[in-house]
Amino acid sequence: MRFTLSTWNINSVRLRIDLVAKFLKVQQPDVLCLQETKCPDDAFPLKQFRRLGYEHIALNGQKGYHGVAVISKLPFASTEIRSFCDNLDSRHISVSFAAESTKAPLLLHNFYVPAGGDVPDPELNPKFAHKLSFLDEIRECAPLHPQGDQRHILVGDLNVAPHEHDVWSHKQLLKVVSHTPIECEKLLAAQQHGNWIDVARDRIPLDQKVYTWWSYRAADWTVGNRGRRLDHIWVSPALRGSVQDFSILRDARSWERPSDHVPVTTVLEL
Rank of each mutant, 00 (worst) to 15 (best):
P143G: 06
V167P: 15
Q28D: 06
N110P: 12
A142H: 03
E36S: 03
A129C: 05
K171A: 12
A142E: 12
Q35S: 08
I17L: 14
G116C: 03
S83D: 06
R203D: 12
T265V: 02
R151C: 14
E36V: 02
Q27C: 08
I138S: 01
A189S: 07
F76S: 06
A218N: 11
P45N: 00
R14F: 05
I93Q: 00
F97D: 10
A238G: 14
P181T: 01
T222A: 12
D260M: 02
L108H: 09
H109M: 05
A190D: 03
D30M: 00
C141A: 03
T212D: 15
F246L: 09
D42V: 11
A69F: 13
Q48D: 10
S12F: 02
D89C: 04
D231V: 01
S133T: 02
P205H: 07
A115D: 07
E140Q: 06
C33P: 13
P120I: 02
H145P: 11
P146A: 02
Q62G: 11
A252W: 04
I197W: 08
V68S: 08
W168C: 12
L270E: 14
F128E: 02
D198E: 09
N9D: 10
A129S: 13
L188H: 01
P263A: 09
V68W: 01
K38G: 12
E137S: 06
P146M: 01
I138G: 11
H66R: 11
P40A: 09
L52M: 03
L5S: 14
L107F: 06
G116A: 01
D30K: 02
L154V: 07
H152V: 14
S178H: 09
A21Y: 03
G64E: 05
K171G: 09
T4F: 03
Q35P: 10
Q192L: 03
S133N: 12
H179W: 03
V113W: 00
I182N: 09
T4H: 04
L5Y: 01
L15Q: 14
H261S: 14
H109E: 08
H92W: 01
H179Q: 05
D89I: 00
N159G: 08
P40W: 00
R229L: 11
P122N: 01
F111L: 06
P122C: 02
A189Q: 04
Q147I: 05
M1R: 12
S72Y: 10
R203V: 06
P263D: 05
P114V: 00
L15Y: 07
R151T: 11
A161D: 05
R16H: 12
R226C: 12
Q62A: 06
S101C: 07
N195G: 14
Q48K: 07
A77S: 13
L124A: 15
Q172Y: 10
